[in-house]
Each structure stands twice: as C-alpha cells, then as structure tokens.
Design a protein around this nucleic acid. Sequence first.
DNA 1: GCTACTGTGACGCGGCGTCAAAGTCT
DNA 2: TAGACTTTGACGCCGCGTCACAGTAG
Lengths: 176, 176
Amino acid sequence: MLITETARRFGLSRSALLYYDRIGLLSPSLRSRAGYRMYSSKDLERLARICSFRQAGLTIGDIGRILSAGDQDGAVLNRRLRELGDEIRALQVQQRMLARMLRLQSLEELPDAIDKQAWIEMLQAAGMDDAAMTKWHAEFERRAPEAHHRFLLSLGICEDEALFIRSQSEERASRE
Amino acid sequence: MLITETARRFGLSRSALLYYDRIGLLSPSLRSRAGYRMYSSKDLERLARICSFRQAGLTIGDIGRILSAGDQDGAVLNRRLRELGDEIRALQVQQRMLARMLRLQSLEELPDAIDKQAWIEMLQAAGMDDAAMTKWHAEFERRAPEAHHRFLLSLGICEDEALFIRSQSEERASRE
DNA sequence: GCTACTGTGACGCGGCGTCAAAGTCT
DNA sequence: TAGACTTTGACGCCGCGTCACAGTAG
C-alpha cells in the first residue's frame, strides 16, 4: 500500500508517516523500483499498534521502546497513567484559576474564603498533613517569593495574612 | 531589579525573561550603562499579570493580546476555558485506554461488553441520539476506516460485529 | 585576578506541517 | 500532456533550555 492511502486508512497525515520513517519508528519493508514506500500487511499491523499507543498519549520514544523491547510489567504504561493524572489535575487547577479570573473581571468582587478551604481539603485528601504544608510553604517562599505571594492572594487570602504566612515560611526555611 | 533576581522572585528562568523581551511581551523600561536590563516596579506588575495568565494556561500570544487590547467580555478567557474542558476530556479518554491496555496485558483477557455500553451511555449523556451516532460512525468510516475498526475492537466489540457496523456505515455514507 | 553576574547569538527539543523542485504513474 | 501521486530536503512552529564567547560589577 502506498503512503497516502495508508495514512488515510489510519487517520494520519502523509508527513507523519514520512516522519516515522525518518526516525526509524516505522520503515516500510519494501520500496518500488521508483523508490515509492510500500507498506506491507506487517507494516500495517505495526502501524496499528503505533496508533493505539499514540492515541493513549504515549510519546514516540516510549512507543519505540515498547515495540522494540516490550513493556516489562507495564512499566511505561503505568508511568504514563500517573503522568496523565498529574496533567489532568494541573488542567483542573487552571480551570479554577480561569473561572476565578472571569468572576473577578465580570463582577469585580473579592474572591471568597471557600477556596482557601477547598485548597487545604484537596491537599489533605492527597495525604498532606500540617507539617507537610508548612514545609511546602517554606519551599515555595524560598524558590519563588513573589509567585508564593500571588498564589496566596489567588486563594482569597488577604494581604496581611499572606505576609504573615510568608514570614513564618521564611523563619522555618532559615532554621534548617 | 536585575534579570536573574527578577526571574527568581517570580519562579521563572532567566531565559524565559530574555525570551519575553525578544518577542516584545515584556521589555524592561531601563538599561544600565553597561546594557543590563533593569526591571522597574511597573515592569514587575506587568510580569505578575503575565505569570497569572501563564499559570492559567494561556498562550503567549493570548497574553499579549489581553495586555495590549484587553479582553472584551472575557472572550479569550472563555475560549481557553472551553479548550481546557476539551483537553481534560481527551486526557480522560487516554486514561481509560491505558487502563484497558494494562488489563489486557496483565490478564490477557477479552475486553468485556460493559465498555461498549459505557461508551454509548457517555455519548447519550452528551446528548447524542441513535441518528447522531449512526452519522458519526459513517463519518469515522469515511475519514479513517482502519482507525474506526481498531476503535470498535477497543470497545470490546468482536470482529464480526465491527465489520457489520462498518458496512452499515459505508452504506449510510454512500447514500448521501 | 576571582567569581558571579550580564549581554548576544546560534542551535536544539517534539511531532509533525508546509513548501519547493524534481521524478513517476495512469 | 495533464494531474495525481511520489521522492528528498529545508525551514517553521511554541516556549523556552542550553551552549559559547565576551563584557562587567564588586
């Protein structure tokens, strides 16, 4: 099968298949006399697997590793699964930030304290205790003080309390 | 304030600030005699806004547009909010695919029919009726037949039923 | 003179898309 | 001969990271 037809069948672009050939992920096993790429049924099977993995969000590198060496105990798949959880949570944080920005922009209101509570509950649900949170604040303050400040304000914490938390974080950091 | 200190305060890298300067997103208003970038308090305020928007997942282009022309009715923010929903749903689909792949790999079992049912329920919950699903199958078959086939199999639909669905999709597509 | 900063410019990443120039099939 | 395919190669995209080399502040 020729390249464009192969691409169409799998919902890919021609340039994607050219790319896969260039990096050695999928090199068609035959060439016509004119040098045209000919995809055999085995190539198509390999391509089908590649597509599945791509749709599952694996990188080209990971797919190459799985196809060449196999995936011992599903290590690669499990790692990607964890990454996906992290990515989704990060996007959900962005959602909340945007929602808050829109509220502030349209209503010009102060954010309510519920969000600070919600944030704490999320961290607790993730297994963090008070000590862990204090340590996390200290680390945040050390690495990016302004960002720390803006983050506290974004939780609906007032300027004074934010400065208090930051000063405590500084103390804690300097004691170590 | 000098560049590295500014970067540290906002949790950014020096190269990010160099980049923002190059593309004109944030150009410090002063330079020292030796040509060093000096960030004024107004620059820092602008940077704080930039950081907020970046943390909300906006592209550099969008941020530039908002900072220069404002965001009429929160159009940019609302668009990004919709995109985020789409992205999250896409990642969740990837999660389910990966989970299924791991199950198949570890248990070497056939996927159960529950997943086909679950898929249908999801689409119905999204407001799709039978007619819409038929149309969607036809479109899928037309644009990427192999991918359509693999998708049906991934739902735990057996080879025969998949071929049947695809042939119906073809008929439906050719009648239009 | 040492160290830690600063500048500019060039190149790299992933996963392709896009364009150009030339050849091939029908 | 037309036009729909194919080849290779080079360059572009985003949001920076990373290098090299040179100048500057203390």
